[in-house]
């Protein structure tokens, strides 16, 4: 079997195709990010995580500092345990608070970290004590309605 120019073209074609796949995997699918970074894991318990998903960003002051690694359900306290993978470049005090926030009105949910004032930094496997659950729209509306109803009762009571 001899080498021919067709071989070169086919080789270039296959290489180009594989490069396309690689581009999709790395640049579009982001296979590489955070996997090369050193990370440490922190746990946080929430009463309600709303629509938080695995791989959702963890932000502090709006900057992405990590990702949600795992969401579990604790069957003893009936709370959600969220494991956060934080980049080792960023250190946070031990009394950092975690909130579940929504980006924009209809955007995805993410975990927001607010640094505290403790001198001791978080280590791998630590648990965040201060957490605030996701805002559930239905609860918000029902609270609003109940408070309105309560106001109405008070007014009636005042008239009598």
């Amino acid at each position: 079997m001899k080498r021919s120019t067709i071989d070169a073209w086919v080789g270039a074609f296959v290489a180009l195709g594989l490069a396309g796949l690689l581009f999709l995997a790395l640049k579009v699918g982001n296979l590489a990010s955070f996997s090369t970074d050193q990370t440490y894991q922190v746990l946080a318990k929430f009463a309600n995580i709303g629509g938080l998903k695995v791989r959702a960003p963890v932000k502090s002051a709006g900057v992405v500092v990590g990702r949600v690694a795992e969401v579990r359900f604790d069957n003893e306290t009936y709370e959600a345990i969220v494991t956060l993978n934080l980049s080792a470049r960023f250190q946070f005090p031990k009394d950092t608070a975690a909130k579940i926030l929504t980006s924009g009105l209809l955007g995805e949910q993410y975990v927001g970290l607010e640094a505290g004032g403790d001198g001791v930094m978080l280590k791998n496997g630590d648990r965040l004590r201060l957490t605030q659950s996701a805002v559930v729209l239905e609860n918000l509306i029902s609270q609003f309605l109940f408070s309105k109803a309560a106001e109405g009762k008070d007014e009636k009571g005042a008239k009598k």
Partner: peptide
Amino acid sequence: VISMPLLAALFSAMGI
């Protein structure tokens, strides 16, 4: 069979 996945990947990459 060999060409088709490569062409589809290139199509997607080019489209993006």
